[in-house]
Design a protein around this nucleic acid. Sequence first.
DNA 1: AATGAATGAGACTTCATTCAT
DNA 2: AATGAATGAAGTCTCATTCAT
Lengths: 196, 196, 196, 196
Amino acid sequence: MRQWTKRQKEIIEFAIKIIVEEGLDNFTTKNLALKLGISEAALYRHFDGKNEIISSILEYFEDIARDTLRLANKFNKSIEKLRFIFKTRAENFVRNPGFVILILSEEIFPPDPMLTEKIKNIMLMNKDNIEKIIQDGQKNGEIRNDIDKETLFYMVVGSFRFMITRWRLMNFSFDLIQIFNKLWEGLEKLLKKEEV
Amino acid sequence: MRQWTKRQKEIIEFAIKIIVEEGLDNFTTKNLALKLGISEAALYRHFDGKNEIISSILEYFEDIARDTLRLANKFNKSIEKLRFIFKTRAENFVRNPGFVILILSEEIFPPDPMLTEKIKNIMLMNKDNIEKIIQDGQKNGEIRNDIDKETLFYMVVGSFRFMITRWRLMNFSFDLIQIFNKLWEGLEKLLKKEEV
Amino acid sequence: MRQWTKRQKEIIEFAIKIIVEEGLDNFTTKNLALKLGISEAALYRHFDGKNEIISSILEYFEDIARDTLRLANKFNKSIEKLRFIFKTRAENFVRNPGFVILILSEEIFPPDPMLTEKIKNIMLMNKDNIEKIIQDGQKNGEIRNDIDKETLFYMVVGSFRFMITRWRLMNFSFDLIQIFNKLWEGLEKLLKKEEV
Amino acid sequence: MRQWTKRQKEIIEFAIKIIVEEGLDNFTTKNLALKLGISEAALYRHFDGKNEIISSILEYFEDIARDTLRLANKFNKSIEKLRFIFKTRAENFVRNPGFVILILSEEIFPPDPMLTEKIKNIMLMNKDNIEKIIQDGQKNGEIRNDIDKETLFYMVVGSFRFMITRWRLMNFSFDLIQIFNKLWEGLEKLLKKEEV
DNA sequence: AATGAATGAGACTTCATTCAT
DNA sequence: AATGAATGAAGTCTCATTCAT
């Protein structure tokens, strides 16, 4: 896990803020420097260039996402693991809406090879972990077996992402946690093996 | 439904092609003109500006989406309506991958008020129609009642969108129809009232 | 005196209208064609190009200005000639504010040799005639002798032009004729030989 | 009074030079940058845009004009005040022909609200001050009373402006000071109360 | 650690004009 | 007499980045 200097953290923070609040179009070196109260040139003291800033944003969120996945292991039941992961994420979103970048990243970032690689890695890490948990649940009878793990992955992650997307589109105006709880209730009904 | 001249259709087509294949960053008037084999100035004979081209792309897809929603009414059962809508869309995607723009549009387009308005309208049209179908299904006992219609909407549309997103990220390399069929099977299981 | 076709007259009229109402910046072939309800290409059926239109505007006003100067000769007294000339012009302005172009022309038109030549000619014609009238008046004792004719020319024409300029700047909002009458009263006091 | 950096002053100077010598049509960012020996982009480090440069030109001249008006107060007699103002201006014009911009500004600058506002302010400042001086002169019997102050303003300022306009049209070829002296002699005769 | 000054590349757009029909 | 389609040249402006200080 990379260590950031104080200034670097500051830059990353404001970069996220701009992307989330003003859109990628307004994420320019000029605007970033302005918000930070420093010169554009100064940015290059701390990062090689703009894409390195984006890359760092991804790493920053990747770390958090990885932590969440790791922490999930303290739970025994698969469904509880999943609930922890998505609940934690929803809470992260509320605490720091900048987190939405993680979801948008695939779509909005410039086609730089380094970035693309990093994004694919994050997605893969996520997919692997979630699917593994689902698979375990299916094996031990916790999770329904009549839908394969990849489809369930699409359904769970897809609905979660879509909820987040809409939340952002509505300018973070609705109570995300409340909507999440309803969504998760539904998702549990979907996942659980029907008891006989 | 707006009528396009031959040239306008051509421009829209190539614009979509560029956005999908090369990303929004490469969707420049210069590139577009180059691909069309005309001068940049010529573009302005056919459209007021770049955003008007984007707007037209949206209208173009909106028309198709609306048609699909309308055609779905020939089915009696709610679930069949939904299956028709999403199946048709999946087929549209295969036939014309440019369709993904409809899904990306919320995130990638420049923050022009006219565009934002149009995008929100399309999303709303979609949400209204789908939720209405779900609601009808719930009323007549076809669709489960223990998850509210909005949550089901998130789940169905979210998984579908996520599947498309991944398909694009993988450069359209997997068989979308096959994956869709699996997904839809799962979604039907989710939606249907469990028979006693 | 050149003869204009009906269409040419129409084009000249609208050109003047645009220049006066919307400024030279908005006097484009596109805008002109739009206002006329014809295509840009059609303009080139009637005029060689934009500068030929401007040139024609100048000729159009030159004809009127020349007429006024000629008609002034029916008066015997120099001061009456002058009064007629400027009064007629003021009335022309009120009737057709497009006339202001004649005053602006030196400053605003593009540096085309043909245009510059034409403008200088109009100005010269005016200067020659007015100064001649002043000179005659000085000879026959009507007009004061202690200020040379060129200086008087500056004073009379300069004040008149300045009045027009301000009238336009105020969007033709004040009563030009009324202000003119006051101005002319003052100018007559300036011009007239003080009676002993 | 705004302070300019060295570069800003340089830019303003060259901008004036171009407008006066080559006309507004040739006052392009490209041409300006070329003359300065810097890139177009560099201009935008020093000014927000082209109109901000124009605006600065106006401010620059406004300061000078205001100074002249202020300095005029050291004279006791109204006519001496006026003579000082116009003589100083004539001298300014000779020293820096770019000054003509102040006179042309109403007509030639693009219809930007900020610019229009600034121009109107300058004109108003001028009118208010000159008319005030004329009024004072009328009150204390120095200046004739039988022509109202506004008409006298038209006459004095109008002739002066017209002289300048012609001077420019003749490419600054005649001796402005000499012509001005003759003009002023005439204007004094106009203004002064005839002694009995 | 930071900055002021600069820049090449390229963005979108408008202009007057031409030409085949 | 008119038009639809096109265009080269030029316009203003923004971008990420570099470099001397």
